[in-house]
């Protein structure tokens, strides 16, 4: 449970940070609705909605049938009528069932109506592998990054979950908020007073001079572990948590790569047309050719078998190897 930890911060579990952000926003906006499977008295798959049903009632914390197309469509329609809505899609794999109203209607509504209709909707979903197999493990965020009109954010810890969800719930248009199964056991410091994490702004988590590692979501923790390993080998890695995948904060990323001269990207989703591909190409559009490497899972489905799952997923060791390889190939800095 939460506990005061001084200096204006409180220690919260990841799920508690989500519940706090929602509670504050539901208190502020009496229209705000939450729709999803088991979001009511059950409190959400990860207890991230715990306490909200008792506080705000079943009308606002509304359990839905298992029907993602209808769930997203209901949220889009209510939001388009001015009733801000958060739709909880338990696992990101099931977003595929609800993409039509999100991609074909919500993302286009403001443009196609010349601003007469906006869709203040947040779709919150949980990505990532944790032993549940090929259709309960996927990270599909890069699919959404190229949809004009959609914003996409991915927290990596309780503070960013709280701040990004607060910001997402104040947006005029649709936002997809992607958390991760393996973030839920984590706790962290969250400011005691209300605050917001700006959408479109990355966070520099670790300063370094030899290589820039760009990542998001749970993989931030893997990147930090790899940075500690690299430090032992004499490599000083800078780590950037993107937080916002659409829009991308290329100013922060390009400034870092301009300094280190080498880019490594890390993601749990597929690298083909992935977040890293997009980041790397945009960096090179700004800076010209830069040694770069993408690290991600194997190009394979994620099995529930623990041996196969572990083999498929990227880990710190794989990132360390990739960074050392790219550094050995790159010219030493300062020798143009």
């Amino acid at each position: 449970m939460s506990s005061e930890s001084g200096a204006g911060h409180v220690r919260l579990f990841f799920r508690e940070a989500i519940a706090r952000a929602l509670a504050e926003e539901m208190e502020r906006d009496q229209r705000l609705l939450v729709l999803g499977q088991d979001v009511g008295s059950f409190g959400g798959a990860y207890k991230e909605f715990a306490g909200l049903h008792d506080r705000f009632g079943p009308e606002r914390m509304r359990d839905t049938p298992v029907a993602e197309a209808a769930m997203v469509g209901l949220g889009v329609g209510a939001a388009a009528m001015g009733h801000r809505t958060l739709v909880g899609i338990t696992y990101m794999d099931f977003m595929t069932l609800g993409l039509d109203p999100l991609v074909n209607y919500a993302a286009k509504a403001r443009f196609k109506t010349a601003g007469r209709i906006t869709v203040p909707l947040v779709v919150k979903t949980t990505a990532g592998a944790k032993g549940q197999g090929v259709a309960h493990s996927q990270c599909l965020e890069s699919w959404l990054m190229g949809v004009p009109g959609l914003k996409v954010v991915a927290p990596s810890d309780p503070a960013s979950a709280y701040g990004l969800l607060k910001s997402a719930l104040r947006e005029d248009g649709p936002v997809v908020f992607i958390d991760h199964k393996r973030l839920f056991p984590k706790s962290g410091e969250v400011p005691s007073t209300e605050c917001f994490a700006p959408i479109g702004k990355a966070q520099l988590l670790r300063e370094g001079s030899d290589v820039t590692i760009v990542t998001h979501g749970y993989m931030v923790h893997v990147a930090m572990e790899a940075a500690r390993e690299l430090e032992k080998a004499g490599v000083d890695a800078e780590v950037i948590d993107l937080r916002s995948l659409a829009p991308l904060d290329m100013d922060t990323v390009a400034a870092s790569v301009g300094k280190t001269g080498v880019l490594a990207t890390l993601e749990e989703g597929q690298v083909t047309c992935g977040v890293g591909s997009e980041v790397a190409f945009r960096v090179m559009e700004r800076l010209g050719p830069v040694p770069a490497v993408r690290v991600g899972p194997l190009p394979a489905p994620v099995s529930s078998n623990p041996v196969l799952e572990a083999e498929c997923l990227p880990d710190a060791g794989r990132l360390v190897d990739a960074v050392r390889r790219i550094l050995s190939q790159a010219k030493p800095k300062g020798t143009a």
């Binding site: 469509g73 889009v76 329609g77 209510a78 388009a80 009528m81 039509d100 074909n104």
Partner: peptide, 19 residues
């Protein structure tokens, strides 16, 4: 989008009901 307006109409109806 054929049938694409139906779930959205239901959402609009939910907003009307709430109002």
């Amino acid at each position: 989008v054929v049938a694409g307006n139906l779930t959205i109409a239901a959402g609009a109806a939910l907003a009307c009901q709430r109002a």
